[in-house]
Amino acid sequence: MIKKASEINETTPWQEMTVGGEIYEGGTAALVNTGDWRTYTPGFLAEKCTHCMLCIPYCPDSSIPVKDGKRQNFDLMHCKGCGICYKVCPMKAITFDKEGA
């Protein structure tokens, strides 16, 4: 009867919501698309990247995945387009442009 976070929305009756607003899973916010907040979008120039990883801890939105010691392309679903990564990249491997431009 009680639903998982992914199944709870603004049409869920009180009987089916979790008691007291508890959530029994971690990281359910990952379901939320905050990427549409973005006006500027970072771009990844893989050929210039040395995988120094400096951009990663500066990202407030956990939008730069890492796999097998390699920085991957942006996870744009959560990227709000703050541009911090673009500024901290010493290799100019990140572009930062107006959305859709």
Binding site: P57, C79, G81
Partner: peptide
């Protein structure tokens, strides 16, 4: 740093803080 960023994120994206917070 290289090792550290391989760890799984414990604060996931999708939170509603401002861009650049």
């Amino acid at each position: 740093l290289k090792k550290e960023v391989e760890k799984p994120e414990r604060l996931v994206g999708g939170h509603r803080l401002c861009a650049g917070c």
